[in-house]
């Protein structure tokens, strides 16, 4: 029988003393890399108002619909453990007035994220991410800065056989047109879609591509 007092919650992990040096090393590599690229660190709370994720990540995404750790605190606020890092960093960028200083603003973060997901190899309910954000430029050079940093991280760690996959999903001008086209295409073949995708057909036909 499960002894709840000596068993960690499903999907969580203890990083034990034997393994902690490997984590410290990965974190050190990430921090150094970000500093080398001119990013500075930002630390935001692990929980935010639930509304922030609904507005940013999107109400009909899997993350918001099924995977958030949402709770009501003693002051009756709906709060959510952050399922990803970008929304909170964007919130802090606005709240702190960083948006009125010199642009672009280049920030990095490192920390735990939380998703009520089905645990499997390399996938946990509390997991750790390092991330960067560049606010305030649409220059494609900023895209390169971020993509190159991601690739450089795995290079510095000594990882082999990784691939950079790239796409453009358009902007608010052309995406609705694409969505419309996809929607009408998949509607003609609705019966061939999985149940999940039949739902997506209504709200987010783009996601069908990645089923």
């Amino acid at each position: 029988m499960l002894n709840i007092l000596t068993t960690r919650p499903r999907g969580t992990n203890d990083i034990l003393p034997d393994e902690a040096p490997r984590w410290q090393y990965m974190e050190d590599v990430f921090r150094q890399l970000c500093q080398d690229y001119g990013f500075t660190e930002i630390r935001t709370p692990v929980f935010e108002h639930t509304e922030l994720f609904i507005r940013s990540v999107g109400e009909v995404t899997d993350i918001v619909a099924k995977e958030m750790y949402t709770f009501t605190d003693r002051g009756e606020r709906s709060l959510t453990l952050r399922p990803e890092g970008t929304a909170a960093v964007a919130r802090a960028y606005l709240e702190s007035g960083l948006n009125s200083g010199p642009q672009p603003v280049k920030l990095y973060y490192l920390g735990p994220m939380f998703r009520y997901d089905r645990p499997q190899a390399g996938r946990y309910r509390q997991f750790h991410q390092g991330g960067v954000e560049v606010f305030g430029t649409n220059n494609p050079e900023a895209d390169i800065e971020v993509i190159a940093l991601a690739v450089d991280f795995y290079r510095r760690l000594g990882l082999q056989n990784f691939e950079l996959h790239l796409n453009s999903i358009g902007c608010k001008v052309c995406r609705p047109v694409l969505k419309e086209k996809l929607s009408s295409f998949f509607k003609t073949r609705q019966k061939e879609l999985c149940l999940n995708c039949q739902e997506r057909l209504e709200y987010n036909p783009l996601r069908i591509l990645d089923c």
């Binding site: 750790h128 991410q129 991601a150």
Partner: peptide
């Protein structure tokens, strides 16, 4: 405010 970012998963790395 056009922006771009990424995140790496440390468990997966």
């Amino acid at each position: 405010t056009p922006s771009i970012g990424f995140a790496v998963g440390l468990e997966r790395a």
